[in-house]
Measured scan of single mutants.
Amino acid sequence: DYEVGESVTVMDGPFATLPATISEVNAEQQKLKVLVSIFGRETPVELTFGQVSKI
């Protein structure tokens, strides 16, 4: 299970290999909103559970 505030690594898509912090969890739809730090700015990205891995 994923929790808000948890650190994960993006495994898929254009942000693969980047660390991210979970900002929202939708367990019903198996989706997460995460904040990816790009060029010093936090960018919100919506991903599925399968696109991230716990650190």
Rank of each mutant, 00 (worst) to 15 (best):
D1I: 14
D1A: 13
D1R: 12
D1K: 13
D1H: 14
D1Q: 13
D1V: 13
Y2V: 03
Y2G: 02
Y2Q: 01
Y2L: 06
Y2S: 01
E3V: 14
E3F: 13
E3M: 13
E3N: 11
E3P: 03
E3Y: 14
V4I: 11
V4M: 06
V4R: 06
V4D: 03
V4A: 06
G5S: 03
G5P: 01
G5C: 06
G5I: 01
G5R: 03
G5Y: 04
G5E: 03
E6T: 07
E6R: 04
E6P: 01
E6C: 08
E6V: 05
S7R: 15
S7E: 14
S7T: 15
V8Q: 01
V8D: 00
V8A: 02
V8N: 01
V8I: 10
V8W: 01
V8R: 01
T9E: 07
T9I: 15
T9F: 13
T9A: 06
T9R: 13
T9M: 15
T9P: 01
V10D: 00
V10Q: 01
V10H: 01
V10S: 01
V10T: 02
V10M: 05
M11A: 07
M11L: 13
M11W: 05
M11N: 11
M11H: 06
M11F: 05
M11G: 04
M11D: 06
M11C: 11
M11Y: 04
M11V: 12
M11I: 15
D12G: 07
D12H: 11
D12K: 08
D12T: 12
D12Q: 10
D12F: 13
D12M: 09
D12R: 07
D12A: 11
G13F: 03
G13Q: 01
G13P: 03
G13C: 04
G13M: 02
G13W: 03
G13H: 04
G13N: 02
P14Q: 08
P14A: 08
P14D: 08
P14R: 07
P14G: 04
P14T: 07
F15T: 02
F15E: 02
F15H: 06
F15N: 03
F15K: 02
A16W: 05
A16T: 07
A16S: 09
A16M: 08
A16Q: 08
A16I: 09
A16E: 07
A16N: 07
A16F: 06
T17I: 04
T17A: 09
T17L: 09
T17P: 07
T17Y: 13
T17H: 13
L18V: 05
L18N: 06
L18W: 14
L18C: 11
L18Q: 08
P19K: 13
P19N: 12
P19C: 14
P19W: 09
P19S: 13
P19D: 09
A20E: 01
A20H: 02
A20F: 03
A20P: 00
A20C: 07
T21S: 06
T21K: 12
T21V: 15
T21G: 02
T21C: 09
T21Q: 08
T21I: 15
I22C: 03
I22S: 01
I22K: 00
I22F: 00
I22P: 00
I22M: 01
I22E: 00
I22V: 12
S23N: 08
S23Y: 15
S23D: 06
S23P: 01
S23G: 06
E24F: 10
E24A: 10
E24W: 12
E24L: 07
E24G: 07
E24D: 08
E24S: 10
E24M: 09
E24P: 00
V25F: 04
V25K: 03
V25C: 05
V25H: 02
V25Y: 04
V25Q: 02
V25E: 01
V25N: 02
N26C: 11
N26A: 06
N26M: 11
N26V: 07
N26T: 05
N26P: 01
N26Q: 08
A27C: 10
A27I: 13
A27G: 09
A27W: 14
A27F: 15
E28Y: 08
E28I: 11
Q29V: 09
Q29R: 10
Q29E: 14
Q29W: 08
Q29N: 10
Q29T: 13
Q30G: 14
Q30L: 09
Q30T: 06
Q30V: 04
Q30A: 08
Q30R: 14
Q30N: 09
K31Y: 09
K31G: 05
K31D: 02
K31M: 12
K31I: 12
K31N: 06
K31S: 10
L32P: 00
L32C: 05
L32K: 01
L32T: 01
L32W: 00
L32F: 03
L32Q: 00
K33Q: 09
K33P: 01
K33E: 05
V34A: 07
V34E: 00
V34N: 00
V34C: 09
V34S: 01
V34R: 00
V34W: 00
V34F: 00
L35K: 07
L35P: 01
L35Q: 06
V36N: 01
V36M: 05
V36E: 02
V36Q: 01
V36P: 02
S37C: 15
S37P: 07
S37R: 13
S37N: 13
S37H: 13
S37A: 09
S37Q: 12
I38N: 08
I38A: 09
I38H: 10
I38Q: 11
I38E: 09
I38D: 08
I38V: 10
F39I: 09
F39W: 10
F39P: 08
F39C: 15
F39L: 13
F39A: 14
G40Y: 04
G40E: 06
G40I: 03
G40D: 08
G40M: 04
G40A: 04
G40F: 04
R41Y: 12
R41A: 12
R41M: 14
R41N: 13
R41W: 12
R41C: 14
R41V: 15
R41H: 13
E42P: 10
E42N: 09
E42I: 13
E42D: 11
E42M: 12
E42T: 11
E42R: 05
T43V: 15
T43R: 05
T43W: 15
T43G: 05
T43I: 15
T43E: 14
T43N: 07
P44S: 15
P44M: 15
P44N: 13
P44R: 10
P44E: 15
P44Q: 15
P44G: 09
P44A: 15
V45R: 02
V45A: 07
V45H: 05
V45K: 02
V45Y: 07
V45I: 14
E46L: 06
E46Q: 06
E46M: 07
E46C: 09
L47T: 03
L47K: 02
L47P: 01
L47C: 05
L47F: 06
L47H: 01
L47Y: 05
L47N: 00
T48R: 08
T48K: 10
T48C: 10
T48Y: 11
T48M: 11
T48D: 13
T48N: 12
T48H: 11
F49E: 02
F49D: 01
F49L: 04
G50V: 09
G50T: 12
G50K: 10
G50F: 09
G50H: 10
Q51Y: 03
Q51L: 04
Q51M: 07
Q51N: 06
Q51V: 04
V52Q: 00
V52Y: 00
V52L: 03
V52F: 02
V52P: 00
V52C: 04
V52G: 01
S53W: 04
S53L: 08
S53A: 13
S53Q: 13
S53C: 11
S53G: 09
K54N: 05
K54C: 04
K54E: 03
K54D: 03
K54W: 04
K54G: 05
K54H: 07
K54I: 05
I55N: 11
I55H: 10
I55M: 10
I55Y: 07
